[in-house]
């Protein structure tokens, strides 16, 4: 539990040290008779929005479909927790960077000199 509170809202970086979002949510595994355990971190999608405003999150999910496609990264792929949370993932293909790719391909990439 303490771990969940520590990593929540920390910066997530991928194997190449590229920023890929914040720890927007934490998946807890409830185990009977033993303390709950962090089983995954959630990055992107509407996850963070749920913590800001439920109505807004519900509206966004209707618009985007599903949970807005967050990336669930299993705790086994977390390499270290320090200033940032480093994970063993390629962010380039991760759904966490869906909007980054969208902005790059649709807007920024089309401007000369990008």
């Amino acid at each position: 539990m303490e771990l969940a509170r520590t990593v929540l809202d920390q910066q997530v970086i991928d194997v190449h040290d590229h920023a890929m979002g914040k720890v927007d949510g934490v998946v807890l595994e409830l185990r009977p008779g033993r303390p709950a355990r962090v089983s995954a971190i959630v990055v992107g999608g509407t996850t963070a929005l749920w913590r800001v405003h439920r109505g807004l999150a519900r509206w966004a999910e209707r618009k985007l479909g599903g949970e807005g496609h967050p990336a669930r990264i299993p705790w086994s792929r977390v390499l270290r927790v320090g200033v940032d949370v480093k994970v063993d993932t390629e962010s380039e293909r991760s759904p966490a960077l869906r909007w980054e790719r969208w902005v790059r391909d649709r807007i920024i990439g089309r401007i000369p000199g990008a």
């Binding site: 979002g21 914040k22 980054e100 902005v103 920024i108 990008a114």
Partner: peptide, 14 residues
């Protein structure tokens, strides 16, 4: 948590 840095090219930090 987006990628940032003025020394990156715009498409690297869209």
């Amino acid at each position: 948590g987006w990628r940032w840095g003025e020394n990156l090219r715009p498409r690297e930090a869209a």
